[in-house]
Design a protein around this nucleic acid. Structure first.
Length: 273
DNA sequence: GTCCATGTTCTTTA
DNA sequence: CTAAAGAACATGGA
């Protein structure tokens, strides 16, 4: 469910309900989702004011008034809800906030439990994460791709190389850039890195504007699904015509993940112009 | 019953 | 040694 555009949309949907408010109560229903093991979230959060809610890669970071922070990772099926009428199944954590007047409840649910809540204390929020896709310079992306012989698809999924892309947006970006997913990352030229950088930004911006993609699970904190799935060019469209050239979209497996591309628009060998 | 799923991490293999 | 492929995690939908 959650790649950069979905996480960004969730942040936008929870921030106005949390910023400036103070934590009044914390209920942990399944301690295993809190990491590291053994941290007592109620003790750490009780009475703290939320100063900021940010995104870094796919992490949702909450900054507290004592300089400490935590982040939530949604994994595959994680979801944050504000004041939902019907409590969702697999709700592992609830946080009540108020500013004396208005009160709100933030609930974290996650059936598959690949996500979690990570206490950082005063540690860095971006350990293990590469640059932001919306900010990285093409020269920096090129330099990072040159360091690995992996297929481009696998390299772009690596959060330490670039942080925030997932299976949907890598496929969509590669199609927009006209690059084959199996092309070795180290063989991408500087010129093509510029194309790729531009394609990634355009794809992510359009997806954020549409509120992300909803395939099955994703919704923002108000329960609103995304709309970008209607604009997918290749992801989930195996056998259907490529919107650019009408050739059937092909599905292969790369780095253990289903991978969609157009064999015509994304030739394995660079086309000469 | 089978296969698949928007992610990450640990283990095994080359 | 490093890099990359594969398995594992847990649940639910088609």
């Amino acid at each position: 469910m959650p790649e950069l555009p979905e996480v960004q949309t969730v942040v936008a949907s929870i921030a106005p309900h949390l910023i400036g408010r103070t934590v009044r109560a914390v209920r942990v229903h399944r301690p295993q989702v809190i990491r590291p093991e053994g941290v007592c979230l109620p003790d750490l959060l009780q009475g703290r004011q939320v100063l900021a809610v940010r995104r870094r890669g796919k992490r949702i970071i909450l900054e507290l008034d004592n300089g400490r922070r935590l982040f939530i990772h949604l994994g595959m099926t994680g979801r944050l809800s504000i004041d939902h009428a019907a409590p969702r199944p697999h709700t592992h954590l609830e946080i009540d906030v108020s500013d004396g007047g208005a009160a709100r409840r933030l609930a974290f649910s996650d059936p598959r439990r690949f996500g979690g809540v990570f206490w950082l204390g005063d540690g860095a929020a971006d350990e293990g994460l590469g640059p932001e896709p919306l900010e990285i310079a093409p020269t920096e992306l090129h330099a990072r791709l040159r360091r690995t012989r992996r297929p481009l698809k696998a390299a772009l999924l690596d959060q330490a190389l670039i942080a925030g892309l997932g299976n949907i947006y890598v496929d969509e970006s590669l199609h927009r850039a006209g690059l084959h997913p199996l092309l070795r990352a180290c063989r991408v030229s500087a010129a093509r890195a510029v194309d790729l950088c531009r394609a990634i930004r355009a794809t992510l911006r359009a997806a954020i504007r549409a509120g992300g993609s909803t395939l099955r699970d994703y919704a923002d904190a108000g329960g609103r699904p995304g709309g970008f799935q209607a604009a997918h060019r290749v992801y989930g469209r195996a056998g259907l015509p490529c919107p650019a050239c009408a050739a059937p979209v092909r599905r292969i497996v790369v780095a253990g993940r289903s991978t969609h591309f157009c064999p015509t628009c994304q030739p394995r060998r660079a086309r000469r112009l």
